[in-house]
């Protein structure tokens, strides 16, 4: 009996080690996919970061540069936590990469993505929220569509936020054959665009208070003069200070783009970047 239990324990230990190793490898894959090379903008900069609440997460962001100089941006949040969410994040990434090649704009991308992954998400009882945007540096126009995701914040001249037109649509996996709509906004020189997931605004401290949008907006206004990477670090630091290192339930993801006054244009390339 003793030998049997010991053998069982050894098997469990070996299984634990295997699981830990595989989770570590999965995390490496996800971090590699998320944190690849960022697109190079002429007279503009873009950055993105994703911090999983666990070893791996279900948040997602990606870029796709079009031959005409436009930059396609997506940020998303998969329902659930950990490994299951990470698996669906990969599914979402594939759907975006495929749709980004052929769609004319953000709304069509979301329509194609929902069509592609709706059945899978329904059969799994899951959903994904995403915000997709096209940045046209020639026209200084940002067109965007939402599938259940919060709209980006546009910080104008370190003093105020620009109210951008509504572009609400249902989450991916919510309704079959839904057709998404898009809105657009023209940006001034030195506007800062900030895309995010609710892991930031819903970060909680030990009292159960949430970080909330107002704190995020305050930090963005105070740090809008910084470069995109440092601005993201300021947001991250602010959340850490608020939560005092309390482990969070949700992943934190942000994408930041800064447009300079001089003509901004994405370096052209035909292929995905990350």
């Amino acid at each position: 009996m003793f030998h049997h239990e010991k053998g069982h324990t050894n098997e469990n230990t070996e299984l634990d080690k295997t699981l830990v190793r595989e989770i570590k490898l999965a995390r490496n894959i996800q971090m590699k996919l998320l944190n690849g090379d960022k697109p190079q903008l002429k007279n503009g900069t873009v950055s993105g970061i994703s911090i999983p609440a666990r070893r791996i997460g279900g948040d997602y962001f990606d870029f796709y540069q079009l031959p005409d100089g436009k930059l396609r941006i997506i940020i998303g949040d998969v329902m659930g936590k950990g490994i299951p969410a990470a698996m669906l994040m990969i599914l979402t990434r594939g759907a975006f990469r495929s749709a980004a090649e052929k769609a004319s704009g953000p709304a069509e991308i979301l329509t194609i993505m929902n069509h592609a992954i709706y059945d899978d998400l329904r059969s799994l009882g899951s959903f994904v929220t995403v915000l997709c945007a096209d940045w046209d540096p020639e026209r200084k126009e940002l067109s965007y569509a939402s599938a259940g995701h919060c709209l980006p914040l546009v910080i104008r001249s370190e003093e105020c936020f620009l109210n951008i037109p509504h572009a609400g649509g249902v989450m991916l996996g919510g309704i079959p054959d839904v057709v998404y709509k898009q809105s657009a906004v023209y940006l001034d020189g030195e506007d800062v665009l900030f895309f995010y997931t609710d892991g930031i605004t819903e970060a909680q401290n030990q009292s159960g208070d949430m970080y909330r949008l107002t704190r995020l907006q305050q930090v963005l206004l105070e740090n809008a003069h910084l470069d995109v990477k440092t601005l993201e670090e300021a947001v991250e630091q602010s959340v850490i200070e608020f939560t005092r290192g309390l482990p969070q339930k949700d992943d934190i993801t942000m994408v930041t783009m800064k447009v300079n006054r001089v003509n901004a244009q994405a370096d052209c390339c035909d292929s995905p970047l990350t």
Partner: peptide, 13 residues
């Protein structure tokens, strides 16, 4: 629920 489209799902389905 408005952002996520929950009401749209109820209305549609």
């Amino acid at each position: 629920f408005v952002t996520l489209g929950v009401y749209q799902i109820i209305e549609s389905l």
